[in-house]
C-alpha cells in the first residue's frame, strides 16, 4: 500500500487575536516573528488517516509539501507521527500560486513519485479555507475523489469512505488509486512519540525543484492565478454597553423599546 499525504504549512491557528496582523498595503498576513508555522490541522488528520491504514495493513506513507526549506519542520512532524518519507517541492517560480496552481504542482510531484495507491489531503487549509487543492490534484491525475471523509478504510484493494454531510454521512466505495480529503470528524491526530521525534530529526528530506517535476511555467505563479485577493482586513468588533434606568419597569421597557426602534431606523 503506497500512500501519499499532501500537507501544508500554515500560521498557527491557536494564535491569540492580538498576534494576528495584516499588511493592508500589500494584502498580506504578517506572521508573528518567532512563532513557528504548524502543519494544517486537517492535513495532520490526513496523516492520521494514513497511519491508521498503515497500522492495519502495513505500507508506506510519503508526505509531500510545497514551500521553502522552512517547511521541513512540518514534514518532520509528520515523519515523527509515523510517516516514512518526506518530500519538499520548492522553487521561486511557485511564489504566489493560487489553489489551482498548487494542485498542479502537487500533481506533478506525485507523478514523479510514480507509485501510489491512495492520496490523502486535508479537506481544506485552516488559513484560507479554500478547500480546492484536493479536487484539482485528483483532476490532474485523473483519479476518483471523495471529499470530507470522516472514515477511510482499505478493504480488499478498494477504499471505503464515509463522507460527512450536513445531517449524517454517505458511504462510498472506490477503486484505487483514489484521492480522499479528510475532515475533522475523523477524530484526533496522534501526538508524535519521543522516538518518533528523534528518528525524524535526522531523516533526509529531499527537495525537488520546479524543473525536476517538469513544471509547465505557464501553469504556476502569480500570472497563472485564476483568482486575485482584493482586500485583506481584520474585522473590528465594537461592543457598547448602556444601562437603561427608570422609575419602574414600565418606564424602563418604554425607553428600551424606543432605543431599539431608533437603531432599527438608523441602521
Amino acid at each position: 500500500m503506497e500512500i501519499i499525504v499532501c500537507i501544508k504549512q500554515i500560521l498557527d491557528p491557536d494564535l491569540p487575536p492580538a498576534k494576528f496582523m495584516v499588511d493592508k498595503e500589500r494584502n498580506k498576513v504578517i506572521p508573528p516573528e518567532g512563532i513557528p508555522f504548524v502543519i494544517n490541522p486537517y492535513d495532520a488528520l490526513a496523516v492520521e488517516a494514513a497511519l491508521k491504514i498503515k497500522d492495519e495493513k502495513g505500507g508506506k506513507i510519503t508526505v509531500i509539501t510545497i514551500g521553502d526549506k522552512s517547511t521541513e519542520d512540518i514534514v518532520r512532524k509528520a515523519l515523527a507521527m509515523g510517516a516514512d518519507e518526506g518530500l519538499i517541492i520548492s522553487d521561486t517560480i511557485f511564489e504566489e500560486s493560487d489553489s489551482f496552481a498548487v494542485g498542479y504542482i502537487l500533481a506533478q510531484g506525485i507523478k514523479k513519485i510514480g507509485r501510489y495507491d491512495l492520496i490523502l489531503c486535508g479537506r481544506q487549509a485552516a488559513d484560507w479555507d479554500n478547500g480546492v487543492v484536493g479536487s484539482v490534484v485528483a483532476e490532474y491525475l485523473g483519479i476518483p475523489i471523495v471529499t470530507r471523509a470522516k472514515d477511510v478504510k482499505v478493504v480488499n484493494g478498494r477504499v471505503n469512505v464515509e463522507r460527512v454531510t450536513t445531517d449524517g454521512f454517505e458511504t462510498f466505495e472506490l477503486e484505487l488509486p483514489a484521492l480522499i480529503t479528510v475532515s475533522s470528524e475523523l477524530g484526533q491526530a496522534r501526538l508524535p512519540s519521543g522516538w518518533g521525534i528523534i528518528k525524524a530529526a535526522s531523516k533526509e528530506i529531499p527537495i525537488w525543484s520546479g524543473k525536476e517535476i517538469e513544471t509547465d511555467i505557464s501553469k504556476v505563479g502569480k500570472k497563472a492565478s485564476r483568482n486575485q485577493l482584493m482586500r485583506l482586513i481584520i474585522p473590528s468588533y465594537e461592543r457598547r454597553c448602556e444601562f437603561i434606568t427608570g422609575e419602574d419597569l414600565h418606564e424602563i421597557s418604554a425607553k428600551l423599546t424606543s432605543k431599539l426602534m431608533e437603531r432599527r431606523i438608523h441602521e
Partner: peptide
Amino acid sequence: AKQVEKAGAILATGL
C-alpha cells in the same frame, strides 16, 4: 538551539 543542532546534537522539542 539551532547552533547545537548544527554541531550534531539531536534536539527533540515538545517532549
